[in-house]
Design a binder for these strands. Structure first.
Lengths: 354, 354
DNA sequence: GTTAGCACTCGCACATAAAGGGTGCTAACA
DNA sequence: TGTTAGCACCCTTTATGTGCGAGTGCTAAC
């Protein structure tokens, strides 16, 4: 059987109606509300064909049709026009996005918030992957007799530090040597490389510095590196599911929250997704718990480095055109923001430790 | 009418039963399951009295009795025995608490998690209030030509820093002077005092340092102070409400999530609560949205300073004795942990800026 | 003061009925 | 041959009625 022009139009109408109302849509509804110039009976015949072809399903013998996943896939791939956001919409989004933002991780969190607010779905965002970020500068700053602060600065500009308690007082000079040594050894290495390096053997020269390092600084150093590598997952708009008819069932709501409560899982799954605008519909998601959901994600990045993700999760019946536009607009904005703040100075200052 | 011994016993039995089952409890149930040696009819008479006195209510003309808020209040104040945790329970809690903990804020977060897990309620925790924390040490560390890191260490041991972009290269010497100046001016001040001080006038001596400060460092300094003052709110076990019969209604669940979603509100309200073990029952909570909930909070602290809170929110029908025991045990543990890690060295190192 | 007995009240679960929206088929039509 | 009107039929939803069970309140007896 052929997917004629008319069948496509009818399919599209059914999808549009179902997305809006969440109710199975009947032939009369289509004929009334969409000006296709054909009668309900004809539409019924076409619907019957579409069902046979796998694009529609019947919840029950009577009652209207519901688009299948195959239909959504077709819609997303072929039928869906790109929805351009109006200038005023863009303004609103941008304004919300940059409200109260002063750090980049903050911006990511904010993006998830805005996204959930605009789409009325559950949104999430991954902070930039740090696998590609490199160490730039390490310092040990004495605070008092037995406390030093270990400071690590990465090329992306992230600063991280840990207070380290020493087992005995240490000369400033020793700290200086150690810091210089560490900067020399590690700058230019990615965080994960640094994490794997056999650190000890790089400190043969100065026995005291080496002992200091091994006993006091190393644990904090490793922990801080791990911490810097961590990709944060932000979620927002979880409660939006309560306004989705599909989740008016308490059991469904519960399982939804349970799935999304396992943040570590979610993070792994998001990280594993391909880059670019990716839409997975219903069963296309490996996870059985998500087999009634669609997930839309897109990546933001700065010249191929530092890639993070942004997306939503919602019922398969979602406004794919609108969602993709908003997600795209947001990732564009984030990428831009990273360009401005993050990418500037890549000259290193490894010799300026004082 | 008098609250006779027998009436109290009956009331206690009703509360115990209702807390366990969430079902209105009838006279037969009491006579069957609690050995009071009196017949259902007698119990009915007593119940009738208790209702008149305001301790019980009738959901409907038939069907058993439900404890009123007044009853819970009486129970909490007078009837409830202190439930001692067994050693093995304590072990389990302590073990869960210290799993994966390496920072103090982390411990607070963990405590909320454990608390929700043990009580099957929604738990929250406030990180230590920082109003009493004082600045100890400030430094400016050159990273490269135009980047310095502003580092602030507080007496409680919290380290915070911001990367600051300079409008022009600055001598290390200038940074050193400025950092020394700042440390001299601010150390010993509480964070909020420092935030309010007229900063500029303290830098008359050195024109260059002053200009540097005004143009580059000040914004980051203020922002970082604000950041350090922030009291974090952690919540855990939100989905536990799905296992509470009272919230089997989707509308109730929704409004619960909506109330707890307004984190800023929650935070303010928790901060505003008195110190010590505080139990507010139903309507005693000002907030209308919480009029069907009870809130239990307790404070942890280190010699009167650095006070934070820990607690749960759940249906008025909760195991007050168990909840208070667990909360108390956890706050004790947190206080202890702060003592070990936080309270040690209070000697300042203001002159060790390098 | 306590208890047994009994009529009465609700709420709940279940069955039954009616309504409404939709289909599928057939036959007529252009 | 594609389109349409008509109609029987299907299934869900909603309303209605009924019986049951748990529980009360009252009265009278102990």
């Amino acid at each position: 059987m052929d997917l004629t022009e008319r069948k496509l139009k009818i399919l599209q109408a059914i999808i549009a109606d179902f997305v809006r109302t969440a109710e199975p849509v009947g032939s009369r509804t289509i004929s009334r509300n969409y000006e296709l110039g054909i009668s309900p009976a004809t539409i019924r015949n076409e619907m019957s064909d579409l069902e046979e072809m796998g694009y529609l399903t019947h919840p029950h013998t009577s009652s209207g049709r519901v688009p299948s996943e195959k239909a959504y896939r077709l819609y997303v791939n072929e039928l869906m026009g790109k929805k351009e956001l109006s200038e005023s919409e863009k303004m609103v989004i941008a304004q919300k996005l940059y409200q109260n933002v002063n750090e980049l991780d903050n911006l990511i969190e904010r993006a998830a918030h805005v996204l959930s607010e605009i789409t009325n779905l559950t949104a999430f965002a991954l902070s930039p992957g740090k696998e590609l970020d490199k160490l730039r500068y390490i310092n040990l700053i004495p605070v008092d007799e037995r406390t030093v602060v270990l400071m690590i600065v990465s090329e992306s500009g992230k600063v991280s530090n840990t207070a380290v308690q020493l087992d005995r007082p240490v000369e400033d000079e020793t700290l200086r040597i150690l810091a210089k040594n560490m900067t020399y050894n590690y700058s230019g290495k990615t965080l994960s490389e640094a994490l794997k390096m056999d650190i000890i053997k790089n400190f043969r020269e100065d026995a005291e510095a080496m002992a200091m390092f091994r006993n006091n600084v190393m644990p904090g150093f490793l922990r801080t590196l791990e911490d810097m590598l961590n990709v944060n997952l932000y979620m927002d708009g979880l409660t939006n599911i309560f306004s989705i008819p599909e989740y008016n069932d308490i059991e469904k709501a519960k399982s939804f929250f349970e799935v999304l409560g396992r943040k570590e899982d979610i993070r792994q799954k998001l990280i594993a997704r391909d880059d670019g605008m990716i839409i997975t519909i219903g069963g296309e998601n490996q996870d059985a718990d998500l087999s009634e959901c669609s997930v839309v994600t897109a990546t933001y990045h700065v010249d191929g480095k530092l890639v993070g993700k942004l997306g939503v999760i919602g019922p398969t019946r979602m406004k794919y055109d609108e969602v993709t536009s908003v997600v795209e607009y947001l990732t564009d904005n984030i990428s831009k923001a990273f360009m401005i703040t993050g990418g500037e100075d890549t000259d290193d200052g490894k010799d300026r430790g004082d």
